[in-house]
Simulated assay, not measured.
Amino acid sequence: MTTPTSSPTLVLIAGHWLGAWAWDDVLDHLDADHLDAVAMTLPGLDDTDPRRTAKTLDDQVAAIRSVVAQHGDRPVVLVAHSGANAPVSLILDRHPELVARVVWIDSGPVAHGSVFAPDFPEGLDELPLPSFDALGQQASLDGLSVKALERFRAKAVPEPATVLRQPVELANPARHHIPTTLVCCSISGEQVVELARTGHPMFAAVSPLTDVDIVDLPTGHWPMWSRPLDLAKVIQSAALQT
């Protein structure tokens, strides 16, 4: 049995519109396995913060750094879903010594200079969760129940425009050598490898990685709701490799 003293802390970070609440079902299973796991809400996604729309990627990086510091600055396993890839890529670049492994959930590292939404209108300070019809054109909703969608809609927090417009500035090649697990859900691992090989912009930062495990977990883009037990098992397995 894995115990908190024999495995690194897991820090779970969800993507756009989501907070720590998005991991509740996964945490239930990780707690049952006695893993030391914490979910966090990135700055800008706390609906009680009156200044949340002014938060930046740098604020999000600082928050992740703070969570690591609370665990004694021991290397952690970062579990990053979807749009959390920008701040997590920055953490890997700035503090590679603090990351024992990164687990990307239907996501992956971003490339230097990446901007999530460079054309986002200047007159807007946030991006609300789109309709599910529109969202389904961008990311797979497979496996999500009506109840899960209702909870998503009720708890989603608009994404700050400052985060969407900020370029990701990366300079440290050490980030390429951090052990990595790619959990492929809405597209297969085989497709990810092929897209990376052919230089697809979304997967360009996968090619330089030197220590990568690829795990297929077929479902939609939000496996923490569609397959929480299976996702917890994948995360646990990744942690045990560390």
Rank of each mutant, 00 (worst) to 15 (best):
P4K: 06
P4H: 09
T5S: 15
V11K: 01
I13S: 03
W17T: 03
W21T: 12
D24Y: 14
D28Y: 11
D28W: 07
L30C: 11
L35G: 12
L35W: 05
A39M: 07
L42I: 01
L45C: 15
D49L: 05
D49K: 00
R51I: 10
T53Y: 13
T53W: 10
A54W: 02
A54T: 11
T56C: 09
D58S: 10
Q60E: 10
V61H: 02
A62R: 00
A62H: 08
V67K: 01
A69P: 03
Q70N: 12
D73G: 15
P75E: 09
P75C: 14
L78Q: 02
S82T: 06
G83W: 06
A84I: 00
A84P: 00
P87S: 09
V88Y: 04
L90P: 00
R94I: 05
H95G: 07
V99H: 04
A100H: 01
A100F: 09
R101T: 08
V102I: 03
G108T: 01
H112E: 14
G113N: 02
G113V: 00
S114G: 06
P118M: 12
P118Q: 06
P121F: 14
P121G: 10
G123P: 03
L124R: 02
L124Y: 13
L127A: 12
L129H: 03
F132N: 02
F132H: 03
G136P: 02
Q138H: 14
L141Y: 10
L144S: 03
K147A: 15
R151E: 13
R151N: 11
F152V: 03
R153G: 15
A154W: 05
A156L: 05
V157Q: 00
A161C: 11
A161M: 12
V163S: 05
P167Y: 12
E169H: 15
N172E: 08
P173R: 02
R175A: 14
R175T: 01
H176D: 13
T180E: 11
T181V: 14
L182T: 00
C184W: 12
S186L: 06
S188Q: 06
E190S: 14
E190D: 12
Q191S: 08
V192P: 04
V193T: 06
E194G: 06
A196T: 01
T198Q: 14
G199L: 12
H200G: 08
M202Y: 13
D211E: 09
D211P: 05
V212K: 01
V212S: 04
D213A: 12
I214S: 09
W222K: 00
W222T: 04
W225P: 02
R227D: 13
D230W: 13
D230R: 00
V234T: 09
A239S: 13
L240I: 04
